[in-house]
Design a protein around this nucleic acid. Structure first.
Lengths: 156, 156
DNA sequence: CGATATTAATTAGCCGGCTAATTAATATTA
DNA sequence: TAATATTAATTAGCCGGCTAATTAATATCG
C-alpha cells in the first residue's frame, strides 16, 4: 500500500496526510514545551500571555484574546491564574469601567529570561540535525501553513 | 532588530524561534481540525482513538494510551464519552479482569469516511499553494522534528 | 500458600481552550 | 432623555491532556 511516502502495510491511510503528521508533531511539541515551562511554574499557553506583555505591557483583555487567537473566557481564566501567581495585575481603564489593562509585576518581568531559554532549548531539540537551510525552509513553510489555516491572523 | 528572518521592530525576540512559529501553527491547526470534526459530533483527539481502532479493532486501554502518546486517564475519559456516543464498546478481557478491549460499533465504523474527508480537507487547506516538492519536504522535516521531540515514539 | 510487588485502569482535580449565556457599562438612535 | 444596541468581560460547563492517588486484579517471591 503506497501513497506519497510509502506507509507500512496495515497502517490507516489517514496517516498519509501531512497534516496528520503535523497534528502528531503538535502533540509532542506541546508536551515538550509544557515540561520545560512546568519547571518555572507555568502552564502551556500562559507564556504566550507573558510574551505579549513583555513586548507591549498594558494590553487589554480583548487585545490579548485577539493576539493569542483565543476566546475571551480563555484569557479571563488565564489572567486569574497568572494574577494569583503574582505575575500580572489588572488595572481598571479610567475611561471605560467595563475594561481593564494587564500589567506585568516585577515577578512577571523576572521570568522573561527563563522562558526565553525554554524556547531556545525547544528550538535546539526540535530542530536538531537540521541544517541552516532546512531550518529556513521549515520556518517559511510553517508561516505559509499558518496563513492558510488562519488567514485572519496578521503574519509575523 | 534582525535575527534569522528579520522581525519587526518591537516584536519580542522569542518569536524568532521556529518552534515558536510551530506552536502558533499547532494552535491554528487544532482549531481548524476541531471545527471540521465538530460537524460530525467529535472533539479533537477523539478521532485519533477511532483511527487506531479503524486500523486495529480491539485494542486495550493501555495500548491506546501508548499509541496516542497520552496518559491512561485521558483514554479513560475519552472512551467513556465515545461509549456514551455509541461509537465504541468495551469488552472485558477474559484472562485478565483488570483489562478490557475496545471495539468499534457500527456507528463508529460509519464515521470513517467522514473523518477521512475532514483530514483530506485539512490537508488541502493547510498545504494550499505548496508544490509537491514542498509538501514532501515539509513532511520529511515534520517527521524529523517529531522524532527529535519524542524519540520513544515509533516512527511511522 | 500467604505476603508483597506490579500492573491496568479509574478517580479527583488541575490546566488551556471552546460554546453559550449572562452581567455591567457604553454608544447609538429615536 | 430614554430606549435600544453594542461592547467588554465573566460565568458555567463542556472537551482533551496532565499529575497524583486510589482501587482491583494478577504476578512474583519467600
Amino acid at each position: 500500500m503506497l501513497g506519497n511516502g510509502a506507509t507500512s502495510v496495515g497502517v490507516h491511510p489517514i496517516r498519509e496526510n501531512t497534516s496528520f503528521v503535523l497534528a502528531k508533531v503538535c502533540k509532542a511539541h506541546r508536551a515538550y514545551v509544557g515540561g520545560l515551562l512546568a519547571g518555572h511554574g507555568l502552564h502551556v499557553g500562559q507564556e504566550m500571555v507573558l510574551v505579549e506583555l513583555w513586548q507591549d505591557d498594558g494590553l487589554r483583555g480583548g487585545e490579548l484574546a485577539a493576539r493569542l487567537r483565543v476566546e475571551p473566557p480563555t484569557v479571563t481564566k488565564m489572567l486569574r491564574r497568572l494574577e494569583g501567581c503574582g505575575l500580572v495585575e489588572r488595572r481598571q481603564v479610567p475611561t471605560d469601567a467595563r475594561s481593564f489593562r494587564v500589567h506585568l509585576t516585577e515577578k512577571g518581568r523576572a521570568l522573561e529570561e527563563q522562558v526565553v531559554r525554554c524556547w531556545a532549548q525547544t528550538e535546539e531539540t526540535a530542530l536538531a540535525g537540521l541544517s541552516a537551510g532546512e531550518r529556513q525552509t521549515f520556518r517559511e513553510l510553517l508561516i505559509r501553513v499558518r496563513s492558510n489555516l488562519d488567514p485572519e491572523f496578521e503574519a509575523e
